[in-house]
């Protein structure tokens, strides 16, 4: 949508526009209302977002021009094919649980992206894919998304709208309903991907008890230990967001992961520098990061 040459220009325009408007509006404003166009206290966060965004977009365009991208093996994602294959061989359904997040949660969108890739494979193998939803908006998006995935695979006849359904918005009622489904239908594979709260272990342990191969993934760090304990494979934190790129192997998506790594490298360097300077009594790095809010 935006060419590579335009990116620095776009960034410059945003910064100049923001700064000029900030000055102009601040002079005309009454004293009691904050009419600054830009929150100067967030300048460093803004700069970090711009720099990190630039690194990602640059990596994406680098990947699009044919650059080689290495991505480490992620066991949980390698197992997706195994899980679908197992379900197909056993003639049992796959249960895909998107968690309790809304469509505004990035983890839910990441989960939908994985579901899209899973749906393409289930369309090919004609394996039933059951998706109980706890949010009506997520339900509608997921229905459209899975339908499009089946259409893209040339298998619209295999798509069943009844397999993607709304259960309830209530947390534990949802857990009870999904547990009941697991016990009755005995799915061969269970995917738990998205935002989870206290119901995570209830779902994962029930899945474990019915002998399903379970692939979990969440950005909720407090729920990850439960998934690691009860599931066969767990996508930890950022791996959930990398899943779509990993499964589709699209160069542009893989490129964004490289940009992410640049961000991690900068953070790591900052941490090492901060710790080293702190040890020799120089505290400005620590003070700087404490003041960034």
């Amino acid at each position: 949508m935006i060419s590579k040459k335009m990116i620095p220009l776009f960034v410059l325009l945003v910064v100049v526009f923001g700064y000029s408007c900030n000055l102009a509006f601040a002079q005309e404003a009454p004293a009691e209302v904050d009419t600054r166009l830009f929150h100067t206290g967030k300048i460093w966060i803004f700069v970090s977002v711009i720099l990190f965004s630039y690194a990602i977009i640059h990596s994406i365009y680098h990947a699009r021009s044919g650059g080689n991208i290495f991505i480490r093996r992620i066991a949980g994602l390698e197992a997706v094919d195994e899980a679908i294959g197992r379900s197909t061989e056993m003639g049992r359904p796959i249960l895909y649980i998107l968690g309790l997040g809304t469509v505004g949660d990035v983890a839910t969108i990441a989960s939908m992206n994985i579901l899209s890739q899973v749906a393409r494979k289930t369309a090919d193998y004609e394996t039933p894919l059951r998706v109980p939803c706890n949010d009506p908006i997520v339900l509608n998006v997921v229905r459209e998304m899975v339908k499009a995935a089946y259409l893209d695979e040339g298998r619209p006849d295999a798509y069943s709208e009844d397999d993607i359904f709304f259960v309830t918005e209530s947390q534990f009622a949802y857990a009870a309903a999904v547990d009941g489904m697991m016990v009755r239908e005995k799915p061969a594979a269970v995917f738990l991907q998205g935002t989870f709260y206290a119901e995570s272990l209830i779902l994962a342990e029930t899945g474990n008890s019915v002998g399903a191969i379970q692939i979990a993934g969440s950005d909720s760090d407090s729920q990850l230990p439960f998934f690691i304990t009860a599931c066969d494979y767990t996508l930890i934190g950022e791996e959930l967001y990398a899943a779509s790129a990993y499964l589709s192997r699209e160069p542009m998506l893989l490129g964004s992961l490289k940009g992410q790594d640049y961000g991690k490298f900068i953070l790591f360097a900052g941490i090492v520098l901060g710790v080293t300077l702190e040890l020799v009594g120089i505290t400005w790095v620590t003070t700087f990061f404490q003041e960034v809010k």
Binding site: S53, I56, I109, D219, I236, L240, A242, G259, K264
Partner: peptide
């Protein structure tokens, strides 16, 4: 890692 992943996914 999650925070960087969220920004990357959002972009």
């Amino acid at each position: 890692g999650v925070s960087l992943g969220v920004i990357s996914q959002s972009i």
